[in-house]
Design a protein around this nucleic acid. Structure first.
Lengths: 337, 337
DNA sequence: TTTTTTGTTGCACGCGTGTGCAAACGTTGC
DNA sequence: GCAACGTTTGCACACGCGTGCAACAAAAAA
């Protein structure tokens, strides 16, 4: 009965006493590759199990200056692909010993406040998987030693101080462009996301350039303020509502699936046209919904898991950081184009 | 040039020296409602700004036994509603001073390992927004003082030790049921999610009961292993593929939108039938996609933001914990039923 | 002016762990 | 049996800040 007497959290000292060793030996027992005999470790671990002890990660972080914490900054919750990325990243990070701090930067136009916040938790790295990140501010944050490592995930960055882990956008768009050309489409419209950020995706530019090289003309494009299917829907509807059949595009190439889904819906429900017969659509990311019979998007699947493993390498400091922007994914051809 | 000399992180001591006060006064300057004169606080804050100082939350947590950290346990990343919940929760928590630890429990069939993990970070609370949570294990985790507070969000729990913040499922389903009945549907099929958890939603039971009270018969139902549109698609397709027109249901009442979207797609693309003319569909959650012209789901919107504010009250300890399961949302009537 | 009250500040101690070093231990080879 | 070596263990110190209390100053009351 009195066994449960307001027992303050058990510490390594308690385990040490029970195991008959010093507190530091307890510490070693929980550390891989530590200098400790198998016998001692076994004793300690048994005592720890008996007491229900687990090392305090806060104290460990404070003492070691290594938190095993990664901040994930997200500002783009309308894009279903974020759910996929979060799932993969948290899973793979956790498997490798890192916990994830999810930071919503939706309300600030800069990520610096969020970075500051993360730095106060001594995160080992901040991973950006959003849109509204200003390279200058990021650099400033890094310069002030706010965070040890700044990683831009699934997006390239021109900033030399930030590490970027992403697909080779050029070859990815080349695959899409090639497919669009092979399919015989002649009047593409590019649907892009936010254009104001210095770290924005280069897919539009790449597509325009590749198309120009192949066909001589420069495709038209429109852009929306965020990767939100609803915004894409409006933009496409507004753009195409009054265009005649022979003036309208025959394919809408979208920066990602979030936009592509809005585009498909607009074409179908706002314009009453068929995809792909009247207007084809391509996406990027291969979100789960893209495979639904309703969309059947032709899209490009990034190797998120491999990229996440690359992130782990970076965190471990075992990375050359050179090939991190050369991941290559896979063109997924479905019915939409 | 030598200004950037390997400057180890500035601490409160540095600020204290520059401001000409003691370290503890610095500490007070950053604490609301602390006993400190306006003059001192100003001096300290200016010095802090000049040095770029920000309190170390790790050390603060260790010293105060309050981390301002909340663990968010998620095991259900196929459900787009999770994205909404994460956005709202992180936003509102952050606004109130809490950071969010995102824990993916997808790989374990129990949440206890994740809870253990969170407890090692001394989280102030663990918030569950998933499915596969076993009440017994949760209770055990609580009993072992693993986490201070265990909160089940948007889901009711029978466990007396866990705090549940959710809609009044009974009245919510009553609204949906009423709508379905008023619309004149006669042969409902309930599409439910996982049924094995002790903390699962009571929507199926509630619907069946209410329908039985009103019509005398007990509706049929099927269930799928997770809230995944693709699984719902398969389940509905398999169930209805060989049923004759007069034997098939005229409305599919779904436990949430994730399932409803799969149901709509199956009805349209697998069975070639029309929604709602041949078979109507209702959902729950009002995910963003539910409003798209493709689905136009009749559904029920939970007051997520208000519930998140309720969570903040719980964290602050300012809650009666009685009305936390009595939030009421709003029936959203669209074309699908 | 003296006393009381109120407001403000400084300090010893603790939070639970990691690091680097030195001492103790055990082993091998001659 | 001794030296030399590798392995294992203990320890002082540090990590950066909060709590509670005591000391202090300033303002209000006597």
């Amino acid at each position: 009965m009195p066994s449960n007497v307001e027992q303050d959290s058990i510490t390594a000292d308690d385990v040490a006493e029970l195991a008959g060793v010093s507190r530091w030996t307890v510490s070693r027992a929980f550390k891989k590759d530590a200098s400790i005999s198998a016998k001692s470790r076994k004793k300690v671990l048994e005592a720890a199990t008996e007491l229900g002890y687990a090392p305090d990660l806060l104290a460990a972080s404070l003492a070691s200056d290594k938190s095993n914490l990664v901040a994930l900054l997200v500002d783009d919750f309308a894009n279903p692909h974020k759910l996929v990325m979060m799932e993969r990243l948290t899973r793979i990070l956790r498997k490798n010993g890192w916990d994830t701090l999810l930071v919503n930067t939706l309300d600030e136009n800069d990520a610096s406040a969020a970075l500051m916040n993360a730095s106060q938790r001594r995160v080992d790295a901040a991973v950006l998987i959003g849109v509204n990140f200003n390279d200058q501010e990021l650099a400033a944050a890094l310069g002030a030693r706010r965070v040890k490592k700044l990683i831009v995930f699934a997006r390239s960055s021109e900033n030399p101080d930030t590490i970027s882990i992403c697909c080779d956008d050029r070859s990815a768009m080349a695959e899409i462009t090639g497919h669009v050309i092979r399919k015989g489409y002649r009047r593409p419209l590019f649907l892009a996301g936010p254009q104001t950020q210095s770290a924005h995706l280069m897919r539009k530019e790449t597509f325009v350039r590749l198309w120009h090289e192949a066909n001589g003309d420069r495709p038209d494009f429109i852009s929306v303020g965020s990767y939100d299917p609803a915004l894409a829907y409006q933009a496409v509807a507004d753009r195409l509502r009054n265009s005649t059949a022979d003036a309208r595009p025959d394919v809408v190439v979208c920066e990602n699936d979030a936009l592509a889904m809005g585009a498909v819906d607009a074409i179908r429900y706002e314009l009453g046209l068929k995809v792909p017969q009247d207007i084809a659509v391509t996406g990027f990311d291969d979100v789960p919904q893209a495979a639904s019979p309703h969309y059947l998007l032709t899209t490009y699947r990034q190797p998120i898991s491999a990229m996440a493993e690359g992130l782990v390498q970076v965190l471990k400091g075992e990375s050359d950081t050179t090939d991190l922007c050369r991941f290559s994914g896979q063109l997924i051809i479905r019915d939409s184009a």
